[in-house]
Simulated scan of single mutants.
Amino acid sequence: MTRPPTDAEFSEMVRASWPSLYRTAYLLLGDAAEAEDLVQSALTKTYASWSKVRCVDAGPGYARTVMLNTATSWFRRRSWRNERPTEVLPEAATCSDEALRPTLLDALSRLAPRQRAVVVLRFYEDMSVAETAAALAVHEGTVKSQTSQALRRLRALLADDVVTVASTGGPHD
């Protein structure tokens, strides 16, 4: 019989997983404070079930699944997305072209929550269709259709900005 994982092993898993979980949460929610809240909620729920984890190596994946399920439940609440204007866009996400980052984050924020989740998992987390479907507890066909709709929407939102950045080297040169 295997022993349950220790609190020290949970702490180590949190230290190792936090950056990745936070980046994913930020891309899902588009808000730094909400992303931190989501990761904290997910880690709290993960800790509550930590004694049931059979393999410590499964901890980060379990925490990510809990985080995605928690985000999905937040998306279902009517009050989850109250607009809060801000003058400064947080710089926590990564993008290879710094000039394009705000444009991409803005376009991503305009997607429906499930579409945003699918795009983040498929293209940022590099998950397969099957892995994304399992993480979101939906059918693979749903992942494919949501991906198609999200990419169509992103192409429409980004068409002019991406062409401008690609041809001039900056968004408004």
Score class of each variant (00 low, 15 high):
residue 115 Q to W: 03
residue 95 C to F: 10
residue 30 G to C: 11
residue 68 L to R: 04
residue 88 V to S: 09
residue 161 D to V: 01
residue 62 Y to N: 00
residue 20 S to M: 08
residue 90 P to R: 04
residue 138 V to W: 06
residue 98 E to N: 02
residue 102 P to C: 10
residue 139 H to K: 15
residue 31 D to P: 07
residue 111 L to E: 02
residue 85 P to E: 07
residue 9 E to Y: 02
residue 23 R to F: 03
residue 63 A to C: 11
residue 103 T to M: 08
residue 102 P to F: 10
residue 168 T to Q: 14
residue 109 S to P: 00
residue 85 P to Y: 13
residue 129 V to K: 03
residue 158 L to Q: 07
residue 57 D to T: 12
residue 31 D to N: 15
residue 168 T to V: 01
residue 157 L to Y: 14
residue 138 V to K: 05
residue 124 Y to R: 14
residue 147 T to N: 15
residue 137 A to K: 14
residue 169 G to E: 04
residue 13 M to N: 00
residue 144 K to M: 13
residue 39 V to P: 02
residue 138 V to L: 13
residue 20 S to Y: 03
residue 145 S to M: 11
residue 123 F to C: 04
residue 2 T to S: 13
residue 91 E to C: 03
residue 76 R to V: 00
residue 135 A to W: 02
residue 107 A to Q: 12
residue 86 T to G: 15
residue 56 V to K: 13
residue 168 T to Y: 08
residue 86 T to P: 00
residue 130 A to G: 09
residue 118 V to R: 05
residue 129 V to F: 10
residue 49 S to I: 00
residue 156 A to Q: 12
residue 111 L to W: 04
residue 166 A to H: 05
residue 15 R to E: 14
residue 40 Q to D: 07
residue 95 C to R: 04
residue 136 L to P: 06
residue 18 W to F: 12
residue 157 L to Q: 10
residue 53 V to C: 13
residue 95 C to M: 11
residue 36 E to I: 01
residue 134 A to W: 06
residue 35 A to H: 08
residue 87 E to K: 08
residue 49 S to V: 00
residue 58 A to K: 13
residue 110 R to N: 11
residue 149 Q to S: 15
residue 136 L to H: 06
residue 124 Y to I: 04
residue 64 R to M: 14
residue 38 L to D: 00
residue 80 W to D: 05
residue 36 E to V: 08
residue 55 C to L: 12
residue 57 D to W: 07
residue 42 A to K: 02
residue 125 E to K: 03
residue 65 T to N: 11
residue 35 A to D: 03
residue 121 L to W: 03
residue 51 S to T: 11
residue 163 V to Q: 10
residue 62 Y to R: 13
residue 18 W to H: 14
residue 29 L to G: 02
residue 8 A to H: 11
residue 100 L to D: 03
residue 95 C to Y: 09
residue 122 R to M: 15
residue 5 P to D: 04
residue 59 G to W: 03
residue 2 T to D: 10
residue 16 A to G: 02
residue 138 V to C: 14
residue 29 L to P: 01
residue 120 V to D: 05
